Computed example of a mutant assay.
Amino acid sequence: MRVSKPITVTIFVLSSTTRSERRFDLHTTIGQLKNKLELITGIPVQNQSIALHSSETDTTPLQALDDDSKSLGYYGVTDWQVLRVTDTDPSTSIVGQLGDISQVEKFELSEDAYAQRQDTVLAYKQRHKIGRFADKEVEEAETSVPHIDIPVGARCEVESTEEDFHKRGTVKFVGPTKFAKGVWVGVEYDEPIGKNDGSVQGERYFTCLPSHGVFVRPDRLNVGDFPVEEINFDDEEM
């Protein structure tokens, strides 16, 4: 008997003092979510204001998650979106009081004095020719993208650590991405065992059903004649 797996999303949780990557079931209600977020951010449930953003750089929220009875799925939350949790009354919470640095005396260093020091990030970059101090030829060589002979549309199988468990699908994307350096291969799995729908951090690279998409390094993937296999989940794993 085939049993459906819980539908989950991987999202980023941000607050004034924390940042973490978390995975939640889409059936989780906002009320249940707030209890989990209190353990993550330290912000009391009654003080939480949760806004959904498409990415960390997006300052305009998609919507507010303000109905405790509704689920994450109701609000259309997808992989790699951002939940920004705000403390509406920091004066009553320990986290809010710890985050108030208005009374802390700040140490300031002029640009000239900073440039003279040898124990700074700037000095390290200068010594090792990193960033804007790097040789132009070396920098161009590091940013070049090698050619990968993996055709889009090819059937493939992704390496799995589970014996007799074949993670098969179709190649949908090959190339550089914004979420990490190097070349990545986007795969649409035959089964809902993926991590996304072809988009990561608000950037779409291909389109597929939710939880069917994944991005892997080319060396973790084999291209060939891999027919579709139906995954049968053992009854003991219900």
Rank of each mutant, 00 (worst) to 15 (best):
E237T: 04
Q46T: 03
R23D: 06
V121E: 13
D119F: 11
C156A: 12
A113E: 14
F24H: 12
Q32P: 08
G186F: 04
E21T: 12
E137R: 14
S144K: 15
T57M: 06
A180Y: 10
V185T: 10
E157I: 13
Q46M: 05
Y114G: 00
T207K: 13
V13C: 13
F215K: 03
A123L: 02
S199T: 06
D219E: 14
T57L: 07
F12V: 09
Y124K: 11
W184E: 08
E157W: 00
D234P: 00
K172N: 05
H212R: 03
R132S: 09
T17I: 05
S91R: 13
H147E: 15
F133H: 14
Q116E: 08
G73T: 11
V95Q: 14
T92K: 12
K34A: 14
S71D: 14
T207M: 11
P192E: 10
F107G: 03
Q118C: 08
C208H: 03
L37R: 04
Y205C: 12
R132A: 09
V187S: 06
T17A: 12
F206Y: 15
G175V: 07
S91M: 09
V121W: 13
C208T: 10
R155A: 07
V158Y: 10
C156D: 05
P90R: 00
V77Q: 03
D190M: 06
D87T: 02
Q81I: 04
V185E: 05
E142P: 00
E157A: 12
V223S: 06
I43S: 04
G175R: 07
E188F: 00
G194M: 08
L37S: 09
G182V: 13
Q201G: 06
S93Y: 14
Q81A: 02
I148W: 04
V158L: 14
S102Q: 14
H27I: 14
E188R: 04
C208A: 06
I40A: 07
G198Q: 08
V200I: 15
T88V: 09
V158C: 11
V216I: 13
Q126K: 15
D68C: 04
R168I: 02
G131M: 05
L37M: 10
S144G: 07
L221Y: 01
V13H: 08
T10F: 01
G99C: 04
G224L: 08
P227M: 09
S4T: 12
S20W: 02
F133C: 02
G182R: 13
T10D: 01
R220V: 01
Q97M: 12
K195D: 11
L122T: 03
V216T: 12
G202V: 03
E139W: 11
E191P: 01
K106Y: 06
H53D: 01
R217P: 02
G169T: 09
S93P: 15
V77K: 03
V223M: 03
P90K: 01
I150Q: 09
V228D: 09
T88M: 14
V183W: 08
S110T: 14
Q46D: 03
F226G: 01
T143G: 00
N47C: 11
F226N: 02
D149H: 11
R19S: 15
W80Q: 07
T170R: 08
E229T: 13
S110E: 07
V174Y: 06
V214I: 10
S71T: 15
L109K: 11
